[in-house]
Simulated scan of single mutants.
Amino acid sequence: MKHVLDRPIWSALATRHQAFAQGDNLARRYMPSIVPFSATAVDDKESVEALAKLIPPCESSFVVQADAIVLPAALCAISTASLVQMIAEQPVQAVSDERIQRLTQDDAAEMLALAALTRPGPFTLEALRLGAFWGVKIEGRLVAMAGERMKQPGYTEVSGVCSHPDFRGGGLGRLLSLFVANRIMTRGEIPYLHAYASNVAAIGLYESIGFRLRSMMNMAVLQHAE
């Protein structure tokens, strides 16, 4: 039996994030201004061809799923990677730090700049529409952040975890990951996240605060073939 997180993008767009979805029961994507993610429920010919029609020729889109990614003739993968999907099912350490503050749309440009510098994953100026983000500022400068992205029944993804290179090693990524995970758990949901399988340091951090491997995942960035 398939797990709801085996196709996290589809599961989110078909349920708690349906308001941000474009497409139909064959293929769906987030509004590209929010996050460039798309998915199908299954990999049959009709569905993957519907996915190709959903992605404009001038755009690219990320697909993440446990199954091998099947492409229609109209699309090609310009980038692929193996990810780990990790979940925290048991209570994690509660943290409190007066430096942690809720980020707002007024912080969006600085958040985007931090994400562009550290590359935690796709990030846009409208990322805050998907869930709350929290950060630490030092001398008025945003130096670390973490927040929520995809949401499925009973689950919320921890995302955008990053620290400015000048402040790495200070435990801010750990602090904010714990803070966001605890907030998700207080709502009765299970926090989960994705990391590149090659990012040993990040995986070790997440394991140290209570996350465990749930599944290996496949990721591809798709665009129309020439």
Score class of each variant (00 low, 15 high):
Pro8Ala: 01
Trp134Gln: 05
Leu112Trp: 13
Lys2Phe: 00
Ala77Phe: 09
Val70Ile: 12
Arg7Glu: 03
Gly121Val: 03
Trp134Glu: 11
Gln105Gly: 09
Phe37Lys: 01
Ala81Arg: 06
Leu71Gln: 04
Ala116Asp: 11
Asp44Ser: 10
Ala225Met: 00
Ala73Lys: 12
Val70Tyr: 03
Cys162Trp: 07
Ala68Cys: 00
Val84Gln: 06
Thr104Trp: 11
Tyr30Cys: 11
Ala88Asn: 15
Pro72Tyr: 02
Met185Gln: 15
Leu51Met: 13
Leu51Ala: 09
Cys162Ala: 12
Ala225Pro: 01
Asp24Glu: 05
Glu89Val: 14
Ala195Asn: 01
Glu46Gly: 04
Glu59Ile: 09
Arg214Asp: 13
Thr104Ser: 15
Thr156Arg: 11
Ala181Gln: 02
Asp107Ile: 13
Leu71Lys: 00
Ala197His: 12
Lys2Asn: 09
Phe167Cys: 05
Thr186Val: 09
Pro165Ser: 05
Arg129Tyr: 11
Leu117Ala: 14
Ser79Asp: 14
Val143Phe: 05
Arg168Val: 07
Gln105Asp: 14
Gly170Asp: 01
Gly135Gln: 04
Ala108His: 14
Ala132Glu: 15
Ala12Val: 08
Leu83Phe: 15
Val63Pro: 05
Arg174Cys: 10
His194Ala: 01
Leu205Ala: 03
Val63Asp: 00
Asn182Thr: 11
Ala66Lys: 14
Tyr206Pro: 03
Gln223Asp: 12
Ile55Cys: 12
Ser11Glu: 13
Asn25His: 11
Gln90Phe: 00
Pro165Thr: 12
Leu128Tyr: 14
Met216Cys: 10
Thr104Pro: 13
Ala73Thr: 13
Leu114Asp: 04
Gly154Arg: 06
Val136Trp: 08
Arg214Trp: 06
Met216Ile: 07
Arg168Gln: 12
Leu213Arg: 09
Glu46Phe: 04
Phe20Arg: 03
Leu75Lys: 06
Arg214Thr: 03
Ala68Leu: 00
Arg16Leu: 15
His164Val: 00
Leu112Glu: 09
Asp44Thr: 02
Ile34Arg: 07
Gln93Thr: 13
Asp107Met: 07
Glu59Cys: 08
Lys45Met: 08
Arg174Met: 12
Lys151His: 11
Ile209Ala: 05
Glu49Met: 13
Thr118Pro: 05
Ser79Val: 09
Tyr206Ile: 03
Met145Asp: 01
Gln90Tyr: 01
Leu83Ala: 03
Arg99Ile: 06
Ala201Tyr: 03
Lys137Pro: 08
Glu157Trp: 12
Thr80Cys: 07
Lys2Met: 04
Val136Ile: 15
Asp24Cys: 04
His224Phe: 09
Ile87Val: 15
Ile69Lys: 02
Met1Pro: 14
Ala39Leu: 05
Ser38His: 12
Gly171Tyr: 03
Glu139Val: 08
Gly135Leu: 04
Lys53Arg: 15
Arg16Gly: 00
Pro165Asp: 07
Ala144Val: 05
Pro57Leu: 13
Ser215Val: 02
Arg16Glu: 15
Ala68Asp: 01
Leu51Thr: 07
Ile184Trp: 07
Ala109Ser: 15
Pro32Cys: 04
Ala77Met: 11
Met1Asn: 15
Gly135Tyr: 02
Gln18Asn: 05
Arg149Asp: 09
Glu110Gln: 15
Val136Thr: 07
Ala94Phe: 01
Tyr155Cys: 11
Gly140Asp: 10
Phe167Leu: 10
Thr15Val: 06
Leu176Pro: 04
Arg28Gln: 15
Leu54Ala: 10
Ala197Thr: 06
Pro72Met: 03
Ala39Arg: 02
Pro56Tyr: 11
Lys2Trp: 00
